[in-house]
Amino acid sequence: MEVFTLNINGEKQEVNVDPNTPILWVLRDSLQMMGTKYGCGIAQCGACTIHVEGVAMRSCQLSVAAVKGKKITTIEGLSENASHPLQEAWIEHDVPQCGYCQAGQIMSAAALLKDKPNPSDADIDAAMNGNICRCGTYTRIKAAIKTAAKNG
């Protein structure tokens, strides 16, 4: 066990955990930040996507030791009151069905728009292919990303 000071959504958080613990489980079990989801544990589904220094990462494969001192953003910290253009677009397009994957989808999309404010369909496919939506909301996700790009 080791004490880590983490920078999550602009706030300092102290946790005492095994250094190998993936940041996913630190968020969920130690800090009760439930927005970041467990889906596969092997970086294949994208449900656990967070930003580390602005880059989309799979938090199930990222140890707490590896993100010590780095700027972490989770879905809870993406915006104040759902005001990120992607969150607004998600609501406008009524994207979610079950909703479980959507936080990860939005975090992947947010990193994409930061790099490419006007992504092509191929850009969206490439950036979002690591995020599984079992309910099949892909067409709405793509439409919402385009709307957010326009409004962003």
Partner: peptide, 9 residues
């Protein structure tokens, strides 16, 4: 929708 896109439990 809003709860979903903000990651509420």
């Amino acid at each position: 929708s809003k709860s979903i896109v903000t990651g509420e439990p």
